[in-house]
C-alpha cells in the first residue's frame, strides 16, 4: 500500500503569541513539533507498515525550510520518504490556499492508496485542510477517525462523534483524518535517527507541483483573521439528580426558570 501522510510543524505551546498587527501567530522563539493529530496519522500508517512491510509511507508538509527538522523526525519514526513543499509564493496561505498546494503536490506524487492527515493543527484548530484536500482531489473522506482497519481496498473506520461513533465503510483511494484516540504515536528510534539523517528530503516549489500562483499565498487566501485567541475552557456540566424522571424534569424546569431561560 502507498500512503501519504500530511503533517504540519506547529509551535509547541497552547499559549502562542499573536502578532497584534497582522493577527497571525508569532512563531519565532517557540520550539516546533510535529502536530499531535498528525503524529496519530503517521502512527497508523506505521502500524500498517509493520503488518505489511511493503507499505510505502511518504510524509508531506508545506512550510518554511525549518519544517525539514520535523520531517527528519517523521523519517526517524519510520516513514520511508518525506517531501517539503516550500516556496515564498505559499507564504500567508490560509487553509484554502494550503490545500490547493498540498492537493497539487499529492497529484504530482500520483501513485497512492490513502491520504492520512491529522484532524487539525494545534496552532490553527481549523480542521479544514484534510477535508479540503479530499474535495480538491475528488476523493471520499472520513474525518475524526478513531479506529481503522482494512482488507484489500476496503476500509472500515469508526468516526468519532461527541456522544458515540459512526461505522463507515469506504474504498481506497480516500482521505482520512486522525484523532488522538486512534493510537499512541511511537517515539523516534535510535537506528531510525541514523537512517533518517542519511535521507535527502526534496523541496518542491510552486512550479514543481504546477500549482496556479493565483490559488496560493496570502493574496489567494479568502480568510481574514479577525482575532486569534485561546478559547475559554468549556465549563463543567451539571448532573441533575432526583428520584425518577418526573422529579429530575421538575428540577431542570426550575433551574431554567431561575436563569430566565424559559
Amino acid at each position: 500500500m502507498k500512503i501519504i501522510v500530511c503533517a504540519k510543524q506547529v509551535p509547541d505551546t497552547n499559549e502562542v503569541k499573536i502578532d497584534p498587527v497582522k493577527n497571525t501567530l508569532i512563531r519565532e522563539g517557540v520550539p516546533s513539533i510535529l502536530n499531535h493529530d498528525d503524529a496519530n496519522a503517521l502512527e497508523e500508517a506505521l502500524k500498517i507498515k509493520t503488518a505489511y512491510p511493503d507499505t510505502h509511507i511518504t510524509v508531506l508538509t508545506m512550510g518554511p525550510p525549518q519544517a525539514k527538522d520535523m520531517l527528519t523526525e517523521c523519517l526517524a519514526m519510520g516513514a520511508d520518504e518525506a517531501i517539503l513543499l516550500s516556496d515564498r509564493a505559499f507564504a500567508g496561505s490560509d487553509t484554502w490556499a494550503t490545500s490547493n498546494a498540498l492537493a497539487a503536490a499529492i497529484r504530482k506524487i500520483g501513485d497512492f492508496d490513502l491520504v492520512f492527515a491529522g484532524r487539525q493543527a494545534i496552532d490553527g484548530d481549523t480542521a479544514q485542510v484534510g477535508p479540503q484536500i479530499a474535495e480538491k482531489l475528488d476523493l471520499p473522506q472520513v474525518t475524526y477517525v478513531k479506529e481503522f482497519s482494512f482488507e484489500g481496498k476496503n476500509i472500515t473506520v469508526k468516526r468519532a462523534l461527541e456522544d458515540g461513533y459512526e461505522l463507515i465503510k469506504l474504498k481506497m483511494p480516500c482521505v482520512l483524518t486522525a484523532i488522538k484516540e486512534l493510537n499512541q504515536p511511537r517515539y523516534m528510534s535510535i537506528p531510525g535517527i541514523y537512517n533518517a539523517t542519511k535521507k535527502t528530503i526534496p523541496t518542491w516549489s510552486a512550479a514543481d507541483v504546477a500549482v496556479d500562483l493565483a490559488e496560493v499565498g496570502l493574496e489567494a487566501s479568502p480568510t481574514n483573521v479577525y482575532r486569534s485567541f485561546t478559547p475559554a475552557g468549556k465549563g463543567k456540566g451539571i448532573m441533575i439528580e432526583g428520584e425518577g424522571e418526573k422529579e429530575q424534569a421538575q428540577k431542570l424546569l426550575i433551574s431554567l426558570k431561575i436563569k430566565h431561560i424559559i
Binding site: 517515539y187 523516534m188 528510534s189 535510535i190 537506528p191 535517527i193 541514523y194
Partner: peptide
C-alpha cells in the same frame, strides 16, 4: 530494546543503531 537504546554505539551490521 524496541527503540534501539541497548545498542547505540555498535554498527548496524552487528544489530546496533550505528551511533
Amino acid at each position: 530494546k524496541d527503540y534501539g537504546l541497548l545498542g547505540v554505539p555498535f554498527p548496524k551490521e552487528y544489530g546496533g543503531a550505528g551511533g
